[in-house]
Write a protein that binds this DNA or RNA. Structure first.
Length: 578
RNA sequence: AGGGCGGUGGCCAAGCGGUAAGGCACAGGUCUUUGGAACCUGUAUGCGUAGGUUCGAAUCCUACCCGCCCUGCCA
């Protein structure tokens, strides 16, 4: 048969299963492939992730980790975890433990390749002496203010420091004096002698060492001078034999300096490649801002489930697999980006849909009495744990004359397309029976619905009618007698603005914190099987969303966090009807 | 203004001179014991703008416009 292939034919042939895979290449992988082809690093691939232990890791770091470690895995290479700890003022041991925990949780194993830039301080000191001897570094006595004015501006060149031409001997003596504690904090620096007229400000004789009497969390009072990032990072990469030093684009104009130090020192030189950092709608990423949220009490600690920290997301119920999937899907490029939160939600729903056991929980209960059901009778109903997973098995759920259903699942005067319970209407109770609403009992004064009275059809056990009649709606429920009380914490975005840091009128992102980002429901009723759950366990509450057990759970009270709601097409219809 | 880097649909992102992949979102629909999931269909005569080179340009050239980063002894 002779027929032209149309676009729809094409789509049928390529099923979503095949098309759904994220692209398996990006500009960094291409660059590495070229280096392998040209044998630039003896065909090795060795990357690193260099966090500073001054805060918790967030989803933006996850992107960086997935890129650096993921690429090393792809090429059968190695990856190091290196703490970039050259500023004792902001760094703490607590953070190194938290970072290690989070990277492991993400599923990466750096084996014995755990390093600390601070362990290279002695080598770095020797490197500095080497540069002094090569007349490429000098001790400068300028105060911070003076140094700033000598640096020039974006459009005006800087001026040479009056201390720039000190002799090698004098520099050596002075630098040793710095190390030996002979000079007060901030009084002198060691600077690279490069070019005060460079259009790249980073090349205008950048500081290599500062005098700073602050105990280091790892080395105590061993040092009173500390190297700067620029004099630490590249050399650390070099020492570890890193081939590709992947970092975010803000370091792009540090690359000439990175290369300059390595070349001047005549040591092994890795290749730095930069990519765009992650931005997410309705949140902030960035160490300082997260720190403010935590320290000023806007949230309850680094692991607050509303935070984009890995600790927060873990507590919220995100799986490491979903975060990795998200990082793969968003791709790698150099362009500024703002990823929609729905992209992240897609990844977690997709993962949990396949893995999370289904349970029934009523968040906002209203009582239903089934008048024709025998009083005192209890039936155990079979329920599949996960229709997406045939190996998930089944469990039994107690059914009785009085049950709770969701208040939202009943309407006295239902609008069009409302498929749930209403006077005279028959619906299915999931895994149980068809019930028909006969009447409701309301509070005389407030009009609040107290009880809904129904009858059930004994011929519909399991949720099927012999005569083949259909019902439009299926409700979840919990037996009153067997219900377990629970607290459920619902989360909304932490900010009300899509771009809190960059909104139309304001500069103060803090004022866009969402006052309703946390809603606590403390009268929830859940099925008894949940009593066996442990903190961290994830579930799908049927028809509602994905939830996990919070560590705040005690023997007295179950506490759940909503990870993400199920997609809700009824909510959309309602919106449209308004 | 000097330097660096970016600009492909609402949000991401392929594309690497041969006639605009894919994902998310959105809109319809099929199916359904979750209004979930799954499945199907639709959504850029267009690649920041204007010129130019070429049989042919998102890809090459020129100019211009817009955005981000850089004036810490932070990383």
């Amino acid at each position: 048969m002779n027929h032209t292939r149309t676009k729809s034919d094409h789509n049928k042939i390529n099923t979503k299963e095949e098309d759904n895979n994220p692209p398996d290449t990006n500009f960094i992988k291409q660059a590495i492939e070229e280096d392998i082809a040209s044998n630039r690093f003896d065909s090795r691939v060795h990357t690193r992730f260099p966090p500073e232990p001054s805060g918790y890791l967030h989803i933006g770091h996850a992107k960086a980790i997935c890129i650096s470690f993921g690429i090393a895995e792809n090429f059968g290479g190695l990856y190091n975890l290196r703490f970039d700890d050259s500023n004792p003022i902001t760094e703490e041991h607590e953070f190194v433990e938290a970072i290690k925990r989070d990277v492991h949780w993400l599923g990466f194993d750096w084996e014995d390749r755990e390093f600390y830039a601070s362990d290279y301080f002695e080598t770095l000191y020797e490197y500095a002496i080497k540069l002094i001897e090569k007349e490429k570094a000098y001790v400068c006595d300028l105060t911070p203010e003076q140094m700033r004015s000598f640096r020039g501006t974006l459009v005006e060149p800087g001026k040479d420091s009056p201390f720039r031409e000190r002799s090698v001997e004098e520099n050596l003596t002075l630098f040793k004096g710095m190390r030996d504690g002979e000079f007060p904090d901030g009084s002198r620096t060691l600077r690279a002698k490069i070019d005060m007229t460079s259009p790249n400000l980073n090349m205008r004789d950048p500081v290599m060492y500062r005098v700073l009497r602050s105990p280091h969390y790892r080395h105590g009072n061993n040092w009173c001078i500390y190297p700067t990032y620029d004099f630490t990072h590249g050399q650390s990469d070099s020492i570890e034999g890193i081939t590709h030093s992947l970092c975010d684009v803000q370091f792009e104009d540090h690359r000439p300096l990175y290369d300059w130090f390595l070349e001047s020192l005549e040591i092994y030189a890795p290749r730095q490649i930069e990519f765009a950092r992650l931005n997410l709608t309705y949140t902030v990423l960035g160490k300082r801002k997260l720190k403010i949220l935590v320290e000023n009490g806007h949230v309850n600690g680094w692991d607050d489930p509303r935070l984009p920290t890995l600790a927060g997301m873990r507590r919220r119920g995100y799986t490491p697999e979903s975060i990795r999937d998200f990082c793969n899907r968003i791709g790698v490029s150099k362009s500024d980006n703002l990823i929609e939160i729905s992209q992240l939600e897609y990844s977690i729903r997709d993962d949990l849909n396949r893995r999370a056991p289904r349970v029934m929980a009523v968040l906002n209960p209203v009582k239903v009495v089934i008048d024709n059901y025998p009083e005192g009778q209890v039936e155990m109903m079979d329920a599949d744990n996960n229709p997406e997973d045939e190996n998930a098995g089944t469990r039994e759920i107690p059914f009785s004359r009085e049950i709770y259903i969701e208040r939202d699942d009943f309407m006295e005067d239902p609008p069009r397309k409302f498929y749930r319970l209403a006077p005279g209407r028959e619906v299915r109770l999931k895994h149980a029976y068809y019930i028909t609403c006969e009447n409701v009992i309301k509070d005389e004064n407030t009009g609040e619905i107290l009880e809904i009275h129904c009858t059930y059809d004994p011929e519909t056990r399991g949720g099927w009618a012999e005569d083949g009649r259909r019902v439009q709606g299926t409700l979840h429920w919990v037996s009153v007698e067997h219900a377990v009380d629970a607290e459920v914490r619902l989360y909304d975005t932490l900010f009300t603005e899509r771009e809190p840091e960059n909104s139309a009128d304001g500069t103060d992102w803090v004022k866009y914190i969402n006052p309703d980002s946390l809603e606590v429901l403390d009268d929830c009723k859940v099925e008894p099987s949940l009593l066996d759950g442990a903190p961290g366990n994830r579930y799908q509450f049927l028809r509602i969303g994905y939830f996990c057990i919070d560590p705040d759970t005690s023997t007295e009270k179950l506490v759940f966090n909503r990870t993400v709601a199920l997609r809700d097409s009824w909510a959309k219809i309602q919106k449209g009807q308004k």
